[in-house]
Amino acid sequence: MTAREGIGGVLATYGTAIAALILFCFFAAMAPNFLNPTNLLNVLKQVSFLAILGIGFGLAFTVAELDLSFAAVCSFAAVVTGGLVHHKFPPVAAMAGGIGVGLCAGVLNGVLVTRLKIPSLIATLATASIATGLGFAVTGGVAFVGRWNPAFLALGRGQLLGVPVLILWTASAALLALFLLKQTRLGLHLVFTGEADEAARLAGVKTRRMKALGLALAGLGAGLVGVLLTATLNSAAPNMAADYLLTSIAAVLLGMTMFEPGRCNVPGTLVGAATIGMLGNGLVLMGAPYYVQDIMLGVIIVASVALSASALKKAAFGI
């Protein structure tokens, strides 16, 4: 989409981002303790997890594949990480284990989709089920908790130069994804594969490899969040990331309504994640019953996709 002129253009491109800002001001004024630094830090943690998972999902989405396994893979990566830390493996090994699990799951998705020709919607559901099952197998259904190596916990709880590391992890993931998509050949090939894979293939782009890569990167993001989640919470349980499935996808879809309307984009995913995280927190602080969040989430998903469709003048999903 080219940026449209005038106020209408600004609203079409930034309308939902502005709405998110208004929502922030609303909670700041109305929700008790919303602006309290401890609370904002809590929100930022949630937002970090949502954002990194969303960026990963978005990379798969860029190559026109759906990854519905990232939350289950994230949980499995978390219990593998937790198990390693729990059994006194060094932090580096625990981190490598968690990220490795995520990457392997992503590669598996890539193989299922590009080699065995299973639609990603189905393939990743199967992967999700397998990952969930393995997570319960590893833990025996209980959670790992304990007095863990502080060096490991610092991966999620620490600060660097006064900045919480979770923010740095998120910023790094976002900058890497942006650099990949906007500045490199590989990124352009990913985008073309998603936009017009026949055209890309005829021009010599290795589209199958690009699709596999997009799915692998989604798995990598899930693995990283598994590690960070475990370190932040000082525990690991199967299914601990299950709620992030819908919230993260909602963040991506909401992000598709801004900056580059109708298209999955990294800045949009960040703002989307911030909005969803803030909404959950603000509603709780204002004393709304827990189910209001679920209802709002559903409304946001439907409204976002409808907005994207109106920006594109056609359905936002060709999958």
Partner: peptide, 20 residues
């Protein structure tokens, strides 16, 4: 035409043989 409609002209001209 095998073009990616939403992508810029220059990307469609250079896809597969990008200048870096």
């Amino acid at each position: 035409l095998a073009l990616a409609a939403r992508q810029p002209i220059w990307q469609n001209v250079f896809i597969g043989a990008e200048r870096t």
